[in-house]
Design a binder for these strands. Structure first.
Lengths: 358, 358
DNA sequence: ATGAAAGCGCTAACAA
DNA sequence: TTGTTAGCGCTTTCAT
């Protein structure tokens, strides 16, 4: 049928002239529907001759199985749904890649949706997946409210929390210790001599943001600084470069006396915007302002000022999540927590090679 | 039902104890199934009193509509499926964002899958979407073979090609002129005095790769250079930073006499790997090797050596694609082609500010 | 306003 | 080996 389409006209193609059903095929081939079904599912059970007739009819009628009907009978589907916070964030797409890699082994298919940190959208997608009978869902929740995830699981669909430790034992999760991450970043900055540090953060409804802040504050307290004044938290309008730009402008506008000398960004996208803006404004990094990011995305090391960042085992996060999805029924749900590590680069280290890169 | 889950035990939750059906709800509420259906779909048609009873039953039984059954009756679904070449490529995720933004307006839901440039996987996802009755599909095809996309459309599902001009008039498409893009990049390099240019490219089965090469070759020919010798094409093992690293190592290993002095990378991910490797190897950019990328991703301008790149209207690509999906039946399919533009930065311009950035 | 029942397309169990 | 048929869960007439 390769080029036959060339002849057809557009309107025709668009018209939803009823898709051929298995009954149509049966009729056209002069066999029973059961036989067509067998050709589709257990070809070996049907005589080559009849099979050919049926296959001809299928091709002829352009038949495509109706997945809904199929599934209505079968009960379930070999696919998995994922909802991440942000489709444009490399952290999540890398994790999605990890999931896909793992799932591929069992020839599951993966569908991804982005919630844009919106609880409603998260719920909508989750419900869509569930209604369509996916085998499991992997969600990085936008807020603390995960009742809907729990509910999905209650109803018999496997569920795993991604990048978020589970608050209840019966739900599996894969996460990275964000408190530790925040602590790492700020301990490092303090060690570099900074005593007032800005935190460009997202809303505290997002757990990652809250935890990283808590870690940062803890590091301050441990160092004998008062987090209340020494940690200047600024909520950015978006976890993006533009958000970072807006945030750092606020910092720079602060009176010199109380202006932080370092900034810890809740992710590398934000940090990218910060670096961009500081450069434009002629502020030297790290001398005028030290910067630490989070996620250690691919490009962090290659920036004009190589960016210090808290690294997470991103893709492994995904593969583990996929693993947990299909553990045997009787095994207890597992809570996996990875540890982050800090990668120090020039954006925060006024040490050895402070001058020119390379 | 918020915290009730806490009490339940895991095994129980996992057991696919048959999901409650509409019949169960009807029974529990002491009404007919039709009434339950009405509560779900046309609540105004049912007496408040009965409605409440039904709603109580729904909550009680944890009922979730079975999407397959629903759709089997209704025929179709308000969602759209997208298949992109690579989920980890910012170009495609940005485009996906564009699609999502546009679709949101009509409260469609979006599902994304990555084919990893594999035709089989592309086919699988497309079929999955089709079988499940999505309203439309948007595909960035891995190869020239788009019969399966045409077929989907023939069967009545709207389809739009993404980042790929349609070869047939009856299929809508949104693309960027990649020949022009390749030409822009190489013309620029030639203007900078380069006479032998490496092209780190992906396989020619991918149209974008082929077109950019053709544009590059054309620019050479126009300048009186022989593309056969002056354009050194190297196929990278992957369109990723690591692929770029492998590619540039080949280039650098060439005997000085025939070694290119500039490299044009088929995307910015590859270029990132190239810059990284050149830095490690101590090759100055652009003096020792000029570099031009493609896509102008967010971080291109912020790299240690700001990267020259061919910019595409990425997110607009997505919104337009979504637009085309739902044009009225009678309107002819549209072929949209955007023009790329070259953004020159330090990685290729030995001109003004050749020395230090900032 | 509600109930009863048909039927969407498919698979699986059974009969021939 | 092939045909017949019940029924998955839902929506939608058509009665009541």
């Amino acid at each position: 049928m390769a080029n036959s389409t060339k002849a057809s006209n557009a309107a025709n193609a668009r018209t939803p002239r009823r898709r051929a059903s298995i009954t149509d095929v049966a009729k056209a081939a002069g066999v029973a529907v059961g036989t067509v079904s067998n050709v589709l599912n257990k070809p070996e059970r049907v005589l080559p001759a009849t099979r050919e007739r049926v296959e001809a009819a299928i091709a002829e009628l352009n038949f495509v199985r109706n997945g809904s009907a199929r599934q209505l009978r079968a009960g379930t589907l070999t696919s998995v749904g994922v909802v991440v916070l942000d489709l444009a964030n490399p952290f999540f797409t890398d994790a999605a890649r990890g999931i896909q890699d793992r799932l591929e082994r069992d020839s599951f298919t993966l569908m991804v949706a982005g919630s844009d940190e919106d609880l409603d959208r998260e719920r909508r997608y989750l419900r869509l997946y569930e209604e369509h009978g996916v085998q499991g869902v992997i969600v990085s929740p936008a807020t603390d409210d995960i009742d809907h995830v729990l509910a999905v699981r209650e109803r018999g669909t496997a569920a795993v929390l991604l990048d978020r430790p589970s608050p209840v034992p019966e739900l599996a999760s894969v996460a990275v210790d964000d408190v530790a991450g925040g602590r790492l970043a700020v301990e490092h900055l303090i060690a570099q001599g900074h005593e007032r540090i800005a935190l460009l953060n997202g809303p505290h409804t997002i757990r990652q943001c809250r935890d990283r802040r808590d870690g940062a504050a803890a590091a301050m307290a441990d160092a004998g600084l008062d987090p209340g004044t020494a940690l200047v938290e600024i909520t950015v309008p978006g976890l993006t470069p533009d958000g970072g730009e807006a945030g750092i402008r606020e910092v720079v506008a602060l009176p010199a006396r109380t202006r932080p000398t370092a900034v810890f960004c809740v992710n590398d996208l934000v940090a990218l915007g910060v670096l961009r803006t500081l450069r434009r404004e002629g502020v030297a990094v790290p001398q005028g302002m030290a910067v630490v990011g989070y996620d250690d995305v691919t490009f962090a090391a290659e920036l004009a000022t190589p960016l210090s960042s808290v690294r997470q085992p991103t893709s492994e996060l995904g593969t583990r999540a996929a693993d947990l999805l299909f553990r045997p029924e009787d095994s207890a749900p597992e809570q996996v927590v990875f540890s982050p590590e800090l990668v120090v680069r020039e954006s925060s280290a006024s040490s050895p090679e402070a001058g020119r890169p390379r």
